[in-house]
């Protein structure tokens, strides 16, 4: 790994990192702070109506603070906003440099393509890690100041599962960023694939291919069973996308 390259990548990514962390953190902090307000709001509704509006969601959700935090963070905001962040980060990692035509300047320095690729991927992973975990830890820290009990271990484990799901999306975005060499096309292709996977999961037998289903960590939060196979498969998929992306990058002409 080349530290000069890594420093350059981190510098280029700094504003995205700061902006992403601020947005995710603001959203994460809002969840525990708004808990009492939401409970009060729903308590105004008669129980029958509450059940009508919430459908299959267990109505005791609002009596379990940790479950509430998970439902709003790991099962909703983090996968949604995190996926957008992962696409935005990944789509420009390689394509941005190709599009700006600085890639040929970089590749005429005595540096291997492998080093260039790995420094970019590591930057992307590091950015996602900082954004997701800063927001999550601050949410849990803030939740600790409320009178409600917080199951920190469960929330952290669920965030780990969500992070693996976001890693899949980031890797897919990096793969398209390598193939297309144009950030908008790379982002569009990633969104298209995710939409197809999400749409396919309307059919029960195909639910398994939708990363969003797995990244919520519902199986672990509700039933207490760690989804080992989905986590392993998502990790394998992410590593596979990156391996193909590196192969494409090694062959790519600039």
């Amino acid at each position: 790994m080349n530290s000069t390259l890594l420093k350059k990548e981190l510098r280029e990514a700094l504003w995205k990192l700061v902006l992403g962390t601020v947005i995710l953190t603001a959203l994460a902090l809002f969840i525990p702070l708004s808990y009492n307000f939401i409970i009060d709001l729903f308590s105004l509704l008669p129980y029958e109506q509450l059940e009508k509006y919430l459908g299959t969601i267990p109505t005791d959700l609002f009596n379990d603070f940790s479950l509430y935090l998970w439902s709003q963070w790991n099962a909703k905001n983090l996968p949604q906003l995190g996926a957008i962040m992962a696409i935005l980060v990944g789509m420009s990692l390689l394509a941005g440099e190709a599009n700006n035509k600085t890639m040929s300047f970089l590749l005429t320095r005595p540096v291997s393509r492998r080093s260039v690729f790995l420094s970019k991927v590591l930057t992307g992973i590091l950015m996602m890690f900082i954004m997701v975990w800063t927001a999550t830890l601050l949410m849990i820290f803030t939740a600790g100041f409320t009178p409600n009990a917080v199951d920190t271990g469960k929330l952290l484990t669920c965030t780990f599962i969500t992070s693996i799901g976001l890693f899949v999306i980031l890797s897919l975005s990096i793969l398209f960023s390598t193939i297309f060499g144009e950030p908008v096309k790379a982002g569009g292709a990633t969104v298209l694939i995710l939409v197809i996977l999400a749409a396919a999961s309307w059919f029960k037998p195909l639910r398994v291919i939708n990363p969003f289903i797995h990244m919520y960590g519902a199986q672990y939060m509700i039933a207490g069973t760690f989804p080992l196979i989905p986590v392993l498969l998502m990790s394998l998929a992410a590593v596979g996308f990156l391996a193909v992306a590196m192969w494409v990058f090694q062959k790519k002409e600039y």
Binding site: K8, N100, F105, R109, P110
Partner: peptide, 30 residues
């Protein structure tokens, strides 16, 4: 590339860097 210098027709360097920074960036490669 370690033993060769190259000047492109249209050198596309990192626009956000200063002259000093691009020199500092390139130096460790050689």
């Amino acid at each position: 590339r370690r033993r060769t210098g190259y000047v492109a027709e249209m050198p596309h360097m990192y626009g956000y860097m200063t002259v000093q920074e691009i020199i500092k960036f390139c130096r460790p490669f050689y």
